[in-house]
Computed example of a mutant assay.
Amino acid sequence: MSLDQVVLLEESLTLAEMVSSSSIAFEYKKSKYILEQDKQAQEMISRFADMKEKYEEVQRFGKYHPDFHTVSAQVRTLKRELDFHENIANFKKAEKELETLLIECSRIIAHSVSEQIKVPTGNPFFDESSCSGGCGSGGSCGCA
């Protein structure tokens, strides 16, 4: 390992510590803890996970499955309940803010090496790539 690599490793650890001790990370950890302690929210998440399994089973047969409409409606209803639960919504917001911070750090690091480096954002509308299916999609993606 060269001296440059050691310095780079130390700086990356410093950056990781800065992100981990940021107010955004603190809010994420706090909201995660609150969510984990919320019995009602955990019950709702568990019910949604069970219903999601049923939904995936129904989706294999589509509208021809006898429970297609019932299960689809129940999944949408449970999802709406999850989205409006205060602790779940707070956690999702904190999680998104932390994700945004990490993406921005990745983008700064990548672009400091080369503007040509693509940094996935997790959102295909904002990814800089012209590729919709990934470069492993059979060679038809059209990436330059």
Score class of each variant (00 low, 15 high):
M1A: 09
S2N: 10
V7W: 10
L8A: 15
L8R: 12
L9P: 00
E10M: 15
E11G: 01
E11P: 01
E11C: 08
L13R: 11
T14H: 10
V19Y: 13
S20Q: 11
S23H: 12
I24K: 01
F26D: 13
E27S: 11
Y28P: 02
Y28I: 03
K29H: 08
K29P: 00
Y33S: 14
Y33Q: 09
L35W: 14
E36D: 13
Q40G: 03
A41D: 13
Q42H: 01
E43H: 08
I45C: 06
S46W: 04
S46P: 00
R47F: 05
R47C: 04
A49L: 06
A49W: 00
D50W: 03
M51S: 10
M51Q: 10
M51K: 13
M51E: 14
K52N: 11
E56C: 10
V58K: 02
V58G: 02
Q59N: 10
Q59R: 06
Q59M: 12
R60Q: 15
F61H: 07
F61S: 15
G62N: 06
K63G: 12
Y64W: 00
H65D: 13
P66N: 05
D67R: 01
D67P: 05
D67M: 05
F68N: 13
F68E: 11
H69P: 00
T70F: 09
T70N: 07
V71K: 00
S72P: 00
S72Y: 01
A73K: 06
L78G: 05
K79Q: 14
R80T: 14
E81Y: 07
L82H: 09
D83F: 05
H85D: 03
E86W: 03
E86R: 06
N87C: 08
I88T: 05
A89Y: 08
A89D: 11
N90W: 02
N90T: 02
N90R: 12
K92L: 07
K92H: 08
K93I: 04
K93A: 13
E95C: 07
E95T: 01
E95M: 08
L98F: 05
E99K: 15
T100W: 01
T100D: 14
T100P: 01
T100I: 02
I103L: 02
E104C: 00
S106K: 08
I108W: 01
I109M: 06
I109D: 04
S112H: 09
V113P: 00
V113A: 14
V113R: 10
S114H: 08
S114W: 09
E115G: 04
Q116Y: 03
I117M: 09
I117E: 11
P120G: 01
N123H: 07
F125I: 03
F125H: 06
F125V: 03
F126P: 00
D127F: 01
D127W: 02
E128C: 02
E128M: 02
S129W: 03
S130E: 03
S132A: 15
G133C: 11
G133H: 06
G134I: 05
C135E: 14
G138A: 06
G139Q: 06
G139M: 08
C141D: 13
G142D: 08
C143M: 05
C143G: 05
A144S: 12
A144W: 01
